[in-house]
Design a protein around this nucleic acid. Structure first.
Length: 492
RNA sequence: CGGGAUGUAGUUCAGCCCGGUUAGAAUGCCUGCUUUGGGAGCAGGAGGUCGUGAGUUCGAAUCUCGCCAUCCCGACCA
């Protein structure tokens, strides 16, 4: 028995488990550039599926894709005061446009004569460049609404980075819409939050809480920020997507007005909304276990892997005569299937490998099965296996993929519910927040109280949930009146 | 950016305290044979300017300093 490196168990060190899993499951790795990751083909395949599913849902809501520049003139960023305040500390700045040979003979240096008249910022988000563009696109109410999205990279110079969860450069989509009325914009922001929530739950099998952010947690420049919040297995909260109602802030900063049908000028109403490669982090930390990744069938690059177990070439031929038609049939049904007939590794090795990579279903067939007309079926989510008749295997697979998708969603939902508790006193809060999970508490609605609670416990308000108990009460910290309970948690 | 730790083969690490031939192990990789129902065995082979730059020294993986990177704890994180 060779010794191989197992993952650090979650109970030993959750953070270490996560870091090891991302690398060992072949999702991503650290690059030569500080804080930036290389997303490997297996990880990128998952991202591509996320993109495809979201893109389809956006388009159903009338959104069109476009592309805006990577670089933003420095002056644009400062047009909206709160916006620049929020992002200034983490911007990468382009100052020159040329290199030259080092006069001292050591490689190349920046050519001091090539300094830019106005520095360019690598986008941390694109509201400013987009609204400077929308100014040219909008003159009448007939030009509205504009519903644009772009898939791109952005850069935020974070102090501490972690693969997928917080990287200096990350991939995302950012939608930017322009509307004639406040109501329409607000509704659109809410609609996109619903799109995110539906996607998270149906495709990623991640249960989320929809809600509105407290003023402290609001996007820089927004009047309201809505978010979907998910609970990771360590009980911490992860913001999985946000949708912002921007009011007329950006329209005013970039002077974007339109003529109404009554021939009056009005400022345009705006939303923006985004999800990023951080969703990959959410995916990993919601479902995976000590054996490796657990992927929802809807996102798995390989949904079914088939491993023939053979001693000699003739036996492999005999197995493949049954397995190849099966694989073809599954492919025709739109199931992502891979047959691994390589002799590079023994079956046991392959089993462990595909478990590490989170393949939802594994089929194994050997001489024994050939004689009996059976096949072995193993599911990743429960780690159970059974031997079934080969004859109706296709139907079994179709049903199981659906069942696994539902099961891991339900498991994650049960976990969240089991780790969400109501807390009514400050003493209780200070104890309970040390344990994993969400705390439903009354809060007086002031930023000051939220600040104090954060300073004392590190907990923040993740959101003011839309659904659930709306009974008023008294703030756990100040005793002042509170309209409803909010979710406090330690966040990623 | 502050405090702590680490950096040696693709990976995980030993060697460093106490400087001295040709820097080791496991695993991975390549070749061959035997294997194959839960991480196979034997034999042979390839692979390291010891993170990087300077300094001390006859001599540096080993001692000193700077820089870079990674991890942990803070600060920061729409």
């Amino acid at each position: 028995m060779a010794n191989f490196q197992k993952l650090t168990p979650r109970a030993t060190d959750y953070s270490k488990w996560y870091n090891e899993l991302v690398v060992k499951a072949d999702l991503a790795e650290q690059s030569a550039v500080r804080g930036c990751m290389v997303i490997k083909p297996y990880g990128y395949a998952i991202w591509e599926t996320i993109q495809a599913e979201l893109d389809r849902r956006f388009k159903e809501k009338g959104v069109k894709n476009a592309y805006f520049p990577l670089l933003i003139p420095k002056s644009f960023l400062s047009r909206e005061a709160e916006h620049v305040e929020g992002f200034a500390k983490e911007c990468a700045v382009v100052t020159h446009h040329r290199l030259m040979n080092d006069p001292e003979g050591k490689g190349v240096v920046v050519d001091p004569k090539a300094r830019l008249e106005e520095e360019l910022i690598i986008r941390p988000t694109s509201e400013t460049i987009i609204w400077s563009t929308y100014k040219n696109w909008i003159s009448s109410y007939r030009d509205l609404p504009i519903l644009c999205n772009q898939w791109c990279n952005v850069m935020r110079w974070e102090m501490r980075t972690r693969l997928f969860l917080r990287t200096a450069e990350f991939l995302w989509q950012e939608g930017h819409t322009a509307h004639a009325t406040k109501e329409e914009a607000e509704n659109y922001a809410a609609t996109m939050l619903d799109v995110y929530a539906d996607f998270a739950e149906k495709v990623m099998a991640i249960p989320v809480v929809k809600g509105v952010k407290s003023p402290n947690e609001r996007f820089a420049g927004a009047l309201n920020t809505y978010s979907i919040e998910a609970m990771m297995q360590d009980g911490k909260a992860l913001q999985a997507g946000t949708s912002h109602f921007l009011g007329q802030n950006f329209a005013k900063s970039f002077d974007v007005q339109f003529l109404t049908n009554e021939n009056k000028y009005e400022y345009v109403w705006a939303t923006s909304w985004g999800v990023s490669t951080r969703l990959m982090g959410a995916l990993i930390m919601t479902h995976s276990d000590d054996n490796g990744l657990v992927l929802p069938p809807n996102l798995a690059p390989i949904q079914v892997v088939i491993v023939p177990i053979f001693k000699k070439q003739e036996q492999l031929d005999e197995l493949m005569a049954k397995l190849n038609p099966l694989a073809d049939e599954l492919k025709q049904l739109g199931i992502r299937v891979q047959v691994d007939a390589s002799d590079k590794a023994t079956p046991g090795f392959k089993f462990a490998e595909y478990e590490l990579k989170g393949v939802p279903l594994r089929l194994a067939m050997g001489g024994r099965d050939l004689e009996n007309g059976t096949i072995e079926l193993a599911r990743r989510d429960t780690m159970t296996k059974e031997t079934v008749s080969f004859d109706n295997i296709v139907e079994i697979i179709q049903n199981l993929l659906k069942e696994i998708q539902d099961n891991i969603y339900q498991k994650a939902l049960d976990f969240r519910l089991a780790n969400t508790r109501e807390v009514n006193t400050w003493e209780e809060f200070k104890e309970e927040i040390k344990k994993p999970g969400f705390l439903l508490c009354h809060w007086d609605g002031t930023p000051e109280t939220e600040e104090k609670i954060k300073a004392e416990t590190k907990a923040t308000i993740r959101c003011i949930p839309f659904e659930g108990d709306k009974t008023p009460g008294k703030c756990i910290y100040t005793g002042k009146p509170s309209a409803q309970r909010v979710i406090f948690a330690i966040a990623y």
